[in-house]
Computed example of a mutant assay.
Amino acid sequence: MADRNTDASQDGALAYTYLVDHPQMLPTLSALLHAQWGDRAFCASRAGIEKRFIARMHRDAVPFTLIALEPASPDRLVGTASISLHELPEFSDRRFWLSEVCVDPAMRGRGMGRRLVEMCQSRAAELGVARLNLYTFSQTKFYESLGWQQDASVVLEGLRHAVMSIDLSH
């Protein structure tokens, strides 16, 4: 990802790129996240989501956001994932986080989430990140299949979340 803006997916059907290169997609991204997690405080406000993602509009530094677009319909954002900073106050010693991995429900099951996570991990490693963290309510097995390990838990909004990490230094 270091020298490219986009990368073809394994099936060639999607284009992966940085949000910073497509700022016009911000309202679509906020709508996707709001539809997925709008009942949770962190995504209750589309304006709040957009403000958070404006701060992630980087390519060559953390934080950054990747998006997946349909090449035949480049205004159709179908997935996203970010590397962000200091996600949880309870874990202030953990600086780098994989966050807000989300795929359009109609596009799930095609490997897009996996590809977004792998691309985020690769780019974070290129930028010198040695260890990434994440928290998830329901996707622990998915992340374990990608090499992540649960090393803590946290209760957020009354729901227990697994806190996981992966070593990128190898």
Rank of each mutant, 00 (worst) to 15 (best):
E87K: 08
S82L: 00
M112P: 14
E90Y: 14
G109K: 09
G113D: 06
T28A: 15
E87S: 09
H170C: 09
A47Q: 11
L69G: 02
S45A: 04
A15C: 14
L66G: 11
M119G: 05
S82N: 01
V154R: 00
E50L: 04
D39V: 11
Y18T: 09
A68F: 01
H170N: 08
S153G: 09
A55H: 06
D167S: 00
Q36G: 15
E126D: 14
A55Q: 08
R4Q: 14
S30T: 11
F53K: 11
D151T: 10
S99K: 09
D93K: 13
T140Q: 08
N5Y: 13
A15V: 15
P27S: 05
R131K: 02
A41H: 13
D7R: 14
A13V: 12
R95V: 14
G113L: 01
A41Q: 12
D21H: 06
G147E: 00
E90T: 13
F53H: 09
G48T: 02
L69S: 00
T140K: 11
V163L: 11
Q150C: 05
P74V: 02
R76F: 05
I49S: 10
L116T: 03
T65H: 01
A106C: 08
L156N: 15
L168H: 02
A31Y: 10
L88D: 12
D3R: 11
A130W: 12
L127T: 03
M25H: 13
H86I: 09
H22V: 02
V78E: 01
P63T: 12
G147F: 00
K51L: 12
F96L: 10
S138W: 12
A8H: 06
F96N: 07
A8P: 07
S82I: 09
T6P: 05
K51N: 13
S145I: 07
A68G: 10
D3S: 07
E144Q: 08
S169L: 07
A72T: 11
N5T: 13
G111H: 07
G147W: 00
A124L: 08
R76T: 02
A13Y: 08
P105C: 13
Q139E: 09
S138E: 13
R110M: 07
R110V: 00
M1V: 03
H58E: 03
M119E: 00
S45R: 04
L156C: 13
S138K: 14
